[in-house]
């Protein structure tokens, strides 16, 4: 075959690098479901709005985690640390130093990035579980600091009275205004992740996710791009932390505990790791699911657990993957 290579005509070029053909339904369905959940909360207000609001904040956090874990295939148990840094920076600077919410948020972001750089630079050269252990450690350390540094963080008591975000003089404090603002944040986050994923940067991440040695052999600086991925994840974590304290008006160490890490992992896998819509739909479904089992009373946790297990059995690639599978099955 190769001793007489077939002549490829000039008209064969240019060759567009087309993504794998995916159905329209698969691309749209998760967003429709997400929009329905948010729409319901907007109409209902009250408690549903609070639950969905938290879910949207988590969607930002998990989208960041997804850059590191999904796109780059690394593991971090310590992203809660960066959310804590962002959240505490916002809370402390706005309540104790009368900063505006935006500069406080940016300061938190800078602090989170500095911390991520300090932990990431030495550890990201390591492989797999060394990195995971290091990230777990930073999560615990930051939690401990939040508890012990009472003069600044007020320890377990937490900081209350954090002012809501105001945009051009309009205070975002009503249920609906908060939901709309958070939805906008989630959409912006998803657009950013989609952009990153399809960029040269995203290709480098995908290469590292595929095979670190193969990526290296192609000239990709693996350590550097892992660090960039880690920093991006930390940035989204920090922003979600800041959003949280402004929406709730309160922060305490409990908010950024190991529970947050476990919950965010659940959201990532239920939603669909490595996809753009996955973290969003995952955050919403995992937040809303326990509420739908409220009528089960004592068996609420049991039903929730069973539902999660069923989801992971029948949708191992997450909800976003489930839609894609249904979509391809429809076609001949």
């Amino acid at each position: 075959m190769t001793s007489s290579p077939s002549t490829i005509l000039r008209k064969a070029f240019p060759v567009p690098a087309q993504p794998a053909p995916r159905g329209r339904l698969a691309a749209v369905a998760p967003w429709l479901v997400a929009a329905c959940i948010v729409g319901y909360a907007l109409v209902a207000g009250g408690y549903p709005a609070t639950v969905v609001g938290f879910a949207l904040i988590y969607a930002v956090f998990v989208s960041g985690l997804n850059i590191f874990m999904g796109l780059t295939a690394q593991v971090s148990f310590g992203q809660s640390a960066f959310a804590a840094i962002g959240g505490y920076a916002s809370a402390i600077l706005t309540t104790q130093h009368e900063w505006g919410w935006l500069p406080a948020m940016v300061a938190g972001l800078a602090a989170a990035l500095a911390a991520a750089l300090a932990i990431g630079y030495p550890t990201l050269r390591l492989k797999g579980h060394y990195l995971s252990m290091a990230t777990l450690a930073i999560g615990l350390i930051v939690h401990e600091i939040a508890v012990e540094w009472e003069s600044v963080t007020l320890g377990y008591l937490g900081i209350s009275g954090v002012p809501p975000i105001d945009i051009a003089g309009y205070e975002v404090s009503s249920d609906r205004a908060v939901l709309i603002m958070l939805s906008a944040c989630v959409v912006a986050t998803a657009l950013a992740v989609a952009r990153i994923r399809s960029s040269r940067l995203g290709r480098a991440f995908a290469g590292i996710a595929g095979s670190e040695d193969a990526a290296r052999a192609l000239g990709i600086n693996v350590a550097r791009y892992k660090l960039v991925s880690f920093l991006l994840a930390a940035a989204f974590a920090s922003l979600s932390g800041s959003l949280f304290v402004h929406v709730v008006g309160y922060v305490s160490p409990e908010v950024f505990s190991l529970h947050m890490v476990i919950l965010s992992f659940t959201m990532l896998y239920v939603g669909g790791i490595g996809t753009v819509a996955g973290p969003v739909i995952g955050a919403l479904v995992v937040s809303v699911l326990p509420e739908t089992f409220r009528s089960f009373r004592d068996y609420q946790d049991l039903a929730y657990g069973a539902a999660l297990i069923l989801l992971l059995i029948y949708a191992p690639r997450g909800l976003a993957g489930l839609f894609a599978a249904l979509d391809t099955r429809r076609k001949p």
């Binding site: 690098a17 995908a206 095979s211 990526a215």
Partner: peptide, 12 residues
């Protein structure tokens, strides 16, 4: 890179 398309692999 298994999940990526042939074109994306070549591009990398």
């Amino acid at each position: 890179f298994g999940p990526m398309t042939v074109a994306e692999n070549l591009e990398l």
